Amino acid sequence: MIEFKGNNTLVVKGKDEYKLSRIHSVSAKPLSIKDQCLHFMSCALSFSTIGWIGAYSAPVLAAYFASFLFGLGLLWALFTFRRYELRAGFKAVDETGDFEVPICRCIKQRDFSRLKQAADDISQRLNSPSSKPYKPL
């Protein structure tokens, strides 16, 4: 699931790699109903938009096709449903500011306890003096 490579420089989940030097906070949290509704509606509307774009080529079938794709988007959101998430806060590298990225998601409660343990482990590595970059005076 989550591994550490090298000397506390990278956190790896699958093929994703994150530099610990850029992470400033890590948290494991359950996703709220609002988060789930936002996920469902964004998937459904994204799929439906493709149908409405097709209105220019076949205006008679556009409403049916868009409705079908809206339902398909709801099914997609149901299959990609997740209840818990591990998020990492990254330091800004430009004027956009700090941002948070979901590193890992899971459905089951026992996996959520693993995410909490991983968040604690990453936080300890962030706070250890060996993981801080050397800054000359």
Rank of each mutant, 00 (worst) to 15 (best):
M1G: 09
M1F: 03
M1S: 08
E3K: 13
K5C: 07
G6H: 06
G6F: 04
L10V: 08
L10A: 09
V11P: 00
G14L: 01
G14P: 01
K15H: 06
Y18V: 03
Y18T: 00
Y18F: 11
K19I: 11
L20C: 01
L20Q: 02
S21R: 07
I23F: 01
S27A: 14
K29T: 15
L31P: 00
S32P: 06
K34S: 08
K34A: 12
C37P: 02
L38H: 11
L38T: 13
F40K: 12
S42Y: 04
S42M: 08
C43G: 10
S46T: 13
S46N: 10
T49H: 08
G51L: 05
W52L: 13
W52P: 00
W52N: 02
I53M: 09
G54W: 11
A55G: 07
A55C: 03
S57V: 14
S57L: 12
A58S: 13
V60H: 10
A66S: 15
F68P: 05
L72N: 04
L72H: 03
L75T: 14
F79M: 09
T80F: 02
R82Y: 14
Y84N: 07
L86D: 00
K91A: 12
K91H: 01
A92P: 01
V93C: 02
D98T: 14
D98S: 15
P102N: 04
P102M: 01
R105M: 08
I107N: 11
I107D: 02
Q109P: 10
Q109A: 14
D111P: 00
F112R: 02
F112I: 05
S113M: 10
R114C: 03
L115T: 00
I122E: 02
L126N: 06
S128L: 02
S128Y: 06
S131F: 06
K132Q: 12
K132A: 07
P136Y: 05
P136L: 06
P136E: 04
